[in-house]
Design a binder for these strands. Structure first.
Length: 315
DNA sequence: GTTATTTGACCATA
DNA sequence: TATGGTCAAATAAC
């Protein structure tokens, strides 16, 4: 972790500490998933071991960086950590007490939220209103400057019950043929009830463990909502899928070879792959691009390991 | 009655 | 100060 330059100023330093804490938190959640997730059973013991080792290394790295930064003699880390735990659990402070919340709504809204960072996004451009397998709840809609279509704002349905911070913005960017741009912010930390996950390990460079990735997705790849009323359709579709979802429907689908799929990571090499499956008819004009960070893609499992083909071929 | 969506207002950031 | 992101009351749908 290179911290000295960026962290030379106090705001920059605090921001960096905050990011490190966030990263450590996500790594801890990943560790928890690896330990508890039933899906993890499909992975060989030896692979689990290496995955756990990898997670431990990540955590060690975060801890080391945090202790290095905080060794300057301040309590910034614990200070920011306290703020982080207050703000990142998806609840306003004022919600601790219903009464106090009702009587001081306006006051408590001050500084309760921050404007969205421009980083940590994953952008998908699709010809249809895609169902990404997660349960979303619309919380806002805004007209956007120089755009004929409003932008829709969604948060994870499990924001309050599980503290999931994932949000997405969806905007129609083209009328005919219809084109939607979905921008994802933060990753899902919830245990999404709508899905039955699969674990897929990508080992595109056999000798390089650092670039091995497991993608978690299943077979549901059809766009399921009507473009003309996408907002209302989305959650209905997810509910409809729920009881029939025995085969393990997915969070993500993989575009075929002839479609751009780009997933970026700030902490590792850019990783892209395609399935070559028969999904092309459905998502033929979809474009995916991530612009930053480990939060760009929601992955329930991201584990190093060599096994890929037999699992992947199911899709 | 409960849950989801709409919409105007508030607030932070560029 | 304009713009975009979020909140929460009002409303609609189930």
């Amino acid at each position: 972790m290179e911290s000295s330059l960026v962290a030379s100023t106090v705001p920059g330093r605090k921001r960096m500490i905050g990011e490190l804490i966030r990263g450590r938190k996500f790594a801890q959640q990943l560790q928890l998933l690896l330990r508890k997730s039933p899906e993890a059973e499909v992975i060989e013991d030896s692979e689990m071991t290496s995955a756990q080792i990898l997670v431990n290394k990540i955590l060690d790295s975060y801890n080391q960086s945090l202790s290095n930064i905080s060794s300057g003699g301040s309590d910034e880390v614990s200070e920011i950590q306290a703020v982080d735990s207050l703000c990142s659990d998806g609840h306003r402070k004022s919600e601790d007490s219903d009464e106090s919340f009702k009587t001081s709504v306006r006051k408590d809204r001050r500084g309760c939220y921050k404007r969205r960072r421009t980083s940590e996004t994953c952008i998908r451009e699709t010809s249809t209103w895609i169902d990404d397998g997660h349960a979303w709840r619309k919380y806002g809609q805004k007209p956007i400057l120089n755009s004929p279509h409003p932008r829709n704002y969604f948060r994870c349905t499990h924001k309050f019950e599980q503290g999931c911070l994932a949000t997405k913005h969806v905007q129609k960017i083209q009328e005919d043929p219809p084109k939607f741009r979905t921008t994802y912010y933060d990753n899902h930390t919830c245990r999404n009830l709508y899905k039955s996950s699969h674990v897929v390990i990508v080992d595109h460079t056999a000798g390089d463990n650092s670039s091995n990735i497991i993608w978690n997705f299943g077979s549901q790849i059809e766009p399921v909502c009507e473009p003309n009323d996408p907002v209302k359709q989305e959650n209905k579709e997810q509910v409809r899928n729920l009881p029939d979802n025995k085969s393990g429907l997915s969070d993500y689908f993989i575009p075929p070879d002839d479609h751009l799929t780009t997933f970026c990571q700030t902490s590792g090499p850019l990783t892209a792959f395609s399935s070559g499956s028969d999904h092309g008819d459905v998502i033929s004009s979809d474009v995916y691009s991530c612009t930053a960070s480990t939060h760009s893609m929601d992955m329930d499992h991201m584990i190093a390991g060599p096994v890929f083909d037999d699992v992947f071929l199911k899709y």
